[in-house]
């Protein structure tokens, strides 16, 4: 029973992080990783919300990668 409780808690933790991440991602990150997502409607954001909650580790990685790339490009331009 302890194992089941632990795994269920882990599941809830994953969902909690997912919900927090998805809210931030759909406000800022989505447009950064995908140009076609710039200026998308709130209806579309709502439609993408459940998937963002579920896929948050993948999206987080992609968001960080894109942000790092953009930072490098900006610092190269400054030089």
């Amino acid at each position: 029973m302890k194992t089941i409780e632990f795994l269920v808690d882990l599941f809830y933790l994953y969902l909690f992080f997912g919900v927090v991440f998805a809210a931030m991602f759909l406000c800022r990150g989505a447009a950064l990783i995908d140009e076609a997502a710039r200026g998308i409607s709130w209806k579309t954001r709502a439609l993408l919300f459940p998937g963002s909650v579920a896929m948050w580790p993948v999206l987080w990685r992609k968001w960080r990668k894109t942000a790092r790339k953009m930072k490098t490009a900006t610092s190269n331009e400054t030089l």
Partner: peptide, 16 residues
């Protein structure tokens, strides 16, 4: 089934 339904939009096809 949830994962499939939640990622059925074209956004997911492109970004995954």
């Amino acid at each position: 089934l949830f994962l499939m339904a939640a990622t059925s939009h074209d956004f997911w096809l492109k970004n995954l």
